[in-house]
Structure formats: C-alpha cells, structure tokens
Amino acid sequence: MPRVRSGLARTATVLVGGLAMAVLAASPAMADTSQSSASALQISLLGGGLASSGSASASNDGTTESISGNQNPPLAVLGAQNVITAGVLGQNVRAYNDGTSAACAGVLGTGGTITIGPGGSCLVTPGAAVTLNLGTNGLATISLVADAIYSSCTATSSPSATGTTSLVNARIVSTVLGVDTTLLSLPASPAPNTGLSVPGLINLTLNGQSSSGTGQLSVTALNLTAIGGALAGVTIGTSNCGANAVAPPIPVIPLAGAPLALGLGALAAGTGGGISFVRRRLAAARS
C-alpha cells in the first residue's frame, strides 16, 4: 500500500507540472509603453522665415527606450538670425519602461544646464542672463531678458499628465542709449495659459497648456507675438508627454502553442502514471 500511495503522489506531481506548463502558455507579459518630445526654441520671421532648434523625442515599447534628435543643440542650428546670439538650448526627453515619460525644454544663459533627474523632474542650473532681441521701437531696442525660461511635463500610463513652466528673472526690457527700462516683469510660475501684453508692442502667453486627450499634455513656456518689425513671434520651451498606455497582453508562449503545451502536460502526466503502474506490477510479481 505505501508503494501505491507513492506512485499516486508522483503521478499527481507530474500532473501539476503539466498543468503549470499550460498556465504558463496562457500567462501574459505586460509592458507599458511611453513617449515624450521637446523643442527648445522656434523663431518666426515675417515673410515665412523660421529658425528652429528642432526637436528631440523618446519612446519606449515596455522594454527598450529609443531617443532621437539632439537634446542639447548648439545655437548654430538656428542659422543666420540675430534674435538670440548667446545662451543654452535644452530639449531633454525620457521614456521609461514602467509607462512613465518626461520632457523638459527651454533656453538658459551661457553656463546654464538643463537635464531630467530622478522621477522625471526637470533639473535646471541657470547661467548668465540670456537675451532675445525682439526688435526696435523708435530709438528703443526691445528685448526679452531672463536667467532661464523652460517648461516640463510628466505622464503615466494610469493615464495622467502634469506640466509646469518656470521663468527665472524674466522681463521685457526697453533699452535707449544703453539705459535699460523694464516694461513688464514676467511671473516666475505662471498659471496655465496666462496672457500678458506690452500694449502696442507684444502679446504673450505663458505656460500655454493643451491636451489631445486623457494622459497627454503639451506645455509651452512662452509664446510671444510681436507687433510690427521683422519678427513675427518666438516660442520657447515646448514639452510634450504621453499619451502612455498599458500595452495589450503578450503571451509568454504564443497562443498558437498553447494546445501543444497542454498536450505535453497531459503526456507528461500520463507517462508518469504509466511508469508508476508498471513499477507496482513488477513489485507485486517479486513479492
């Protein structure tokens, strides 16, 4: 009798193993996808001219991150223009395999740095002041001056997305015979879609935010439209995050192979039971 019980135990063990193979065949491997993109600076000129820093983008299929574009382009990519002649362009992107993504984009003064840190946070070290020449008004030169102007965003596959804008010591300045006069001081942390203007000169939208759907967000730190002159507009720091998503289940063993796995499991169980039965008959014959 003990030998019979032992054979049954072995048969049960093999059967469980076969069933486990079948379950493994049907078990899905989940993979969250993510994406982001960023552009530091766009300069529009009257007549259709455009100077652009280009863009960088990141995507992740749940296992591998792919990044394209220059995340820290030199000013030379803007070509022959005199709006900005010194400073740092940043358009950093990340897409992680847990379904989260981050972007950070904008302009800083010479010596500044802009990167994406832990948790998708935007880490910025301002340098010297950066100046964007917006044109002239009579004897005055109108400029946008700041230590840093940038936006950032993060997104998850839950889905959700958030974004912010930071303007460090940003202001619109009029310069006449070397004397600067601040026409408008810009808020350091503007609310979404804040509109401001210098009457008769420029209109601005700060922390412009828009979304094409849940879990996706586009944030532009500053959009400026000039009134008169050769400059049509300036767009600084556009960050895009999402939409990220939970990918469809991917079977560890393709579903087409599930019947084979079930068959192997059953065969293993049956073989184990058959071997146990033969061993019992041989033992009975010797006794």
Score class of each variant (00 low, 15 high):
180 D>H: 04
127 G>S: 06
87 G>W: 02
4 V>P: 09
118 P>Y: 00
98 D>Y: 07
84 I>Q: 04
277 F>I: 12
171 R>D: 13
155 A>D: 15
90 G>M: 09
175 T>K: 06
258 A>C: 03
160 S>N: 12
106 G>P: 10
49 G>L: 01
117 G>D: 12
204 L>R: 06
182 T>S: 12
7 G>Y: 03
230 A>F: 03
176 V>Y: 10
191 A>E: 04
255 L>M: 10
92 N>H: 12
187 P>A: 02
153 C>T: 03
188 A>I: 08
182 T>Y: 05
187 P>E: 04
37 S>P: 15
11 T>G: 13
287 S>V: 01
276 S>R: 03
128 A>Q: 14
176 V>A: 14
264 L>F: 08
1 M>G: 15
89 L>R: 13
165 T>W: 11
195 G>M: 08
128 A>F: 09
32 D>N: 11
242 G>P: 10
119 G>C: 03
36 S>K: 13
79 G>S: 08
227 I>G: 12
201 L>D: 11
228 G>A: 05
37 S>R: 06
122 C>N: 10
272 G>L: 07
244 N>Q: 09
125 T>V: 05
170 A>H: 04
183 L>D: 10
166 S>G: 05
95 A>D: 14
231 L>H: 15
172 I>C: 14
100 T>F: 02
209 Q>M: 06
16 V>M: 12
80 A>E: 15
234 V>T: 15
166 S>P: 09
190 P>Q: 00
224 L>F: 02
49 G>A: 03
81 Q>L: 01
62 G>L: 00
238 T>W: 01
163 G>D: 11
263 G>C: 13
274 G>P: 06
13 T>R: 07
176 V>F: 12
272 G>T: 02
203 N>W: 03
236 I>F: 01
85 T>Q: 10
112 G>D: 12
86 A>P: 05
180 D>M: 07
56 A>Y: 03
159 P>A: 01
117 G>K: 09
236 I>C: 06
266 A>W: 05
123 L>W: 06
278 V>L: 05
83 V>H: 15
85 T>C: 10
84 I>L: 07
105 A>F: 00
55 S>D: 09
222 L>K: 06
193 N>Y: 03
221 A>R: 08
181 T>E: 07
259 P>F: 04
273 G>C: 11
260 L>F: 01
240 N>R: 04
145 V>L: 11
24 L>K: 02
186 L>E: 13
42 Q>P: 09
